[in-house]
C-alpha cells in the first residue's frame, strides 16, 4: 500500500475509533438489566448439565449452535469445491515421528475427556473437537497424507454428524409435540451428550479436513473421477 491510501485510512480510522471507544465505554458502564448469564445459572438445574456454557450452547441456544455447525459445513464444502491443490510435504524427521506416536493418542484421549467434562466443568464439544482437529493437523505435518481421516464417504458422514444429531433430536421432539429441540427433562442429559459427541467428531473432522485446503481423496491426482 502506498502512502496516500494509508493516510486516508488513518484519517478515516481516527475519528471512527474515538466514537467507537466512547460507545464501548458507555455500554460497559451503563447499568444493564438482568444479564443472561445470571438467568442461565438459575435455570441450570433444568438442563441436565452443570456447566452454564454447555447449557447455553446445547440447550438454551442449541438452535444457534446447529446453524453454527452449518457454517462449518458450508466452509468445508466450499474448500472441497475449490478443487485440489498440490501438497507441500516435507519428509518427517525421526524424532518428530516418534513424538507423534505419543502425542496423537494423548490428544484423542484428552478430547474425549473434555467432551465428558464439558457437562460439569469448562470443556465441551468445540474444545474437544478442536483437539481432534489438531491431532489430524499434526499427522498431516508429519507426512500422513490422509491425516488419519477415513474415506471420503465416511468424511461426509462425519461432517454432518453434529447437525444431523441436532436435527434428529429436534425433529423428534417436534414430532412428539414438545417443540423443536425442546428436550424432555428426564432425557435431557443423555440427548445433550449424544449431540455433543456427534458435534465433537464433526468439529474435529471438519477442522482436520479443512487444513489441506482441498477435497479428500488420493493427493497429487488432479482430476478425480465423478
Amino acid at each position: 500500500m502506498n502512502r496516500t491510501p494509508s493516510l486516508v485510512v488513518a484519517l478515516l480510522v481516527a475519528p471512527l475509533a474515538l466514537v467507537l471507544l466512547w460507545a464501548f465505554h458507555e455500554a460497559l458502564t451503563q447499568p444493564s438489566g438482568a444479564r443472561l448469564a445470571d438467568l442461565a445459572e438459575t435455570s441450570l438445574s433444568r438442563t441436565g448439565v452443570g456447566n452454564p456454557v454447555t447449557a447455553v450452547l446445547l440447550s438454551y441456544r442449541g438452535y444457534d449452535t446447529m446453524l453454527e455447525l452449518g457454517v462449518l459445513l458450508a466452509a468445508l464444502l466450499g474448500i472441497w469445491s475449490l478443487g485440489r491443490v498440490s501438497p507441500g510435504f516435507h519428509p518427517p524427521e525421526l524424532a518428530l515421528t516418534a513424538m507423534v506416536a505419543w502425542v496423537v493418542p494423548l490428544l484423542i484421549l484428552t478430547a474425549g475427556y473434555l467432551l465428558w467434562a464439558g457437562a460439569e466443568r469448562p470443556g465441551g464439544a468445540f474444545q474437544g473437537g478442536a483437539l481432534l482437529g489438531a491431532a489430524g493437523v499434526i499427522l498431516r505435518l508429519t507426512g500422513e497424507r490422509r491425516l488419519g481421516l477415513p474415506s471420503e464417504r465416511a468424511q461426509r458422514r462425519l461432517a454432518i454428524a453434529g447437525i444431523g444429531a441436532f436435527l434428529a433430536v429436534g425433529l423428534g421432539t417436534a414430532a412428539a409435540g414438545l417443540g423443536f429441540l425442546a428436550y424432555p427433562e428426564s432425557w435431557s442429559k443423555w440427548l445433550i451428550l449424544l449431540i455433543e459427541t456427534a458435534t465433537t467428531l464433526a468439529v474435529g473432522m471438519t477442522l482436520a479436513a479443512a487444513y489441506p485446503g482441498g477435497p479428500p481423496g488420493p493427493a497429487g491426482n488432479e482430476r478425480d473421477a465423478p
Partner: peptide, 18 residues
C-alpha cells in the same frame, strides 16, 4: 458463547486462505 463466532470467523479465514 462467542467461541462459536470465533470459529465462524476463523473458518471464514480458512476458506479465504484456501
Amino acid at each position: 458463547a462467542l467461541a462459536e463466532a470465533a470459529i465462524g470467523a476463523g473458518f471464514g479465514g480458512a476458506l479465504m486462505l484456501a
